[in-house]
Nucleic acid binder design. Sequence first.
DNA 1: CAGCGGTTCATTTTT
DNA 2: TGAACCGCTG
Length: 784
Amino acid sequence: MADETSLNPEQGAAVEQTSGPLLVLAGAGSGKTRVLTQRIAHLIDHADVAPWNILAVTFTNKAAGEMRERIEYLVGDEAAGRLWIGTFHSVCARLLRYESKAFGLHSDFTIYDTDDCRALLRRLLVALDLSEQDFPIRQVHGEISRAKNAMIDVPTFAGRAAHNPHKRRIADIYDAYEKGLRANNAFDFDDLIVEPVRLLQRFPEVLEKCRRRWKHILVDEYQDTNRPQYLLTKLLAAEHRNLCVVGDDDQSIYQFRGADIRNILDFEKDYPEAVVVRLEQNYRSTGRILAAANAVIDNNVDRKGKNLWTALGEGDLLQVAECGDDRGEARHVVAQIRQLCSQHDYTLADAAILYRTNAQSRVLEEELRRHKMPYIIVGGTRFYERKEIKDVLAYLRLLVNPADDVGLLRVINAPKRGIGDTTVEKIALFARQTHTDLLQAALHAGEVPGLAARAVKAVATFGELMTGLAQQIHEGGLSLPELAQEVLDRSGYLEALRELDIPEADSRIDNLGELVNSMSEFSGRYEGEGIGLSQFLEDVALMSSEDEAMAGAAGGTLTMMTLHSAKGLEYPIVAICGMEEEIFPTQRAIEESRSQPRAIEEERRLCYVGITRARRHLLMSYARWRYLFGQGREMLPSRFLEELPKELVENVQVQAELAWGSPAGADRGVRRQAGGRQGANRQGTGRQGGGQSSPAKQIPKPKAPTGVHYVADEDSGLQMQFPGAGDGTGGDDLLGVGRWVQHPAWGRGQIVAREGDGDKTKLSIRFGATTKRVVAAYAQLQPI
DNA sequence: CAGCGGTTCATTTTT
DNA sequence: TGAACCGCTG
């Protein structure tokens, strides 16, 4: 809150502790990022540490980017550019590429995401003659992943499984899976951490080199580290012991995926000489909000214990709303937010709606659209996980790594070339017999036994396509976006999409255009060696959906996201919806808690995270009745609500969407008729946003392929049709949030945020995967 | 081989 | 409610 450079005594202590192990227990909103960045600046400016000797590891790309940005501000671009800042995964991927030769790996490996891994497993099950019924892919993959993260290798796993037939089969799958990955020259996410650990354990000279390189190590969100990540930092820091970890045990919300809270709880055991600093002054929230957070988290046993305090004053009561049903809840929450906005002069960008599961967003979206309120959804389907994007990337992957069978299987018949399953199977068999990869086999289609002439021809076409592209790369002179364009054209992918007579086709084509744009942007940044294809692919594989500059964005766009995605963010107004048993905490957590009472604690921490996102106004709501699994159900209020001290809470009651009758039946008919429901607006919040109502949307697009966090094109299109809809910012102009523009250098982009006004208007524009901030007056933007 | 329609399934969270 | 999967048909 205070300016960037002023520090309280604890923060100052952490910054100035420049050597030896340091544990910073940083409560929510206590300025931990400031401490981290200042500490790095301090190391460089006052402790004579070279930037390239500093390794700072974060949990998300977004956090890494923000940290780099803030450090740039402190020490300048030059020094900041030489720091090692990144996620565990990206730093490790880099390490693996550098050191690949040391242990006989290809440096051009492919990173398999969850989908790819499942595709591989699916094939392996067939090969092992096991049914997906008995071995559900999800579960098997989960089990393998858990084993890997516990550093249990295949022989060990098999040893432990000896007595259990089912486990033994899984050991076989695990074995085949590992071999499959290696044969495909691929790593999964887990490997990216686990393999470097093994590498460092096995090769002392590599370890030595790394220790010399990274003389100071800082780890953010330490409570979220898993076993291999812990081992990695331990290995690297064992000698110089300059390890600074920052975290909050109360905000550990990723144990479900292997984060080990002991890493932070036992830090002082591992490093007895560690200095411990607690940051307990919160600069974010009002007293009542903090008191509520403290009261809730106090029910957890598994914690170090701390108490946040604030100098910001009591603030308002929290509101807990009991709603008749989920739609009533949505209506109430939206109405409340509107009211708070007009009362306190906030814009919609100052508000966030949080929920436990993504599925809950739908009802809220409907309500927001009804009011023509612009919103963005953080998370959801990621851009790079869309089918069309993954398809094109698979072509590119295959060009870098011809052994990538999973990639090949993805594209050999996309677009349709008349290569069906039987043909593929024959090729696969041939590949196995001749000990090559699928691409090699496909290139020798003529030799594959039992392949009909027509199939041979089809496969040959595909083979020529790939060799042709490979050759073009070889000859050089092709830029990254040009290469992508070649793939799109020569593969016939784009053409097939154009001919496809379905409504989504257009947005898919747009997405592909964005992909090409993101490549242009990338090659602009990474001029130099080659076309940087494999670096691009790595970036993309490790990219999360949160690489956007949306925190603190002005511009009248409300944010919705899961509680998980909200970690690290803050808003003046926060609403947490679905405060109901079996939703939050989830049914699963409740079940688990029967045998393992602590299972609830992670949910409670999540609740704590949610509460502490709020700066001024916190609204929690539950519905007594909601659609779940497509069916109406009665719900009970969440136990977490009972943990809120009564004196902090104002309780309100909101009636159901339909006052009487079975909500189930009545509800349905009205549903999508946005225009038809007059009563929807009543609920009396006073002023409406944009006066003139408009004709019902012409393209209801039954499917909202959320995708990019910004509600997909058609939605922003909707917003555009109704200027003035927003509120706060006059949305009347061509450079409002949601608008698409053309930039001379970066191509097509979508405006995601807007700050300031007049000459000083700054816009954040997302071009493909990256977001740029520009001054509207200078950027030569062309609205499209 | 592709496309359709019916079925079943599951819904945490993400690098 | 919806996505993903299966089996059937053309």
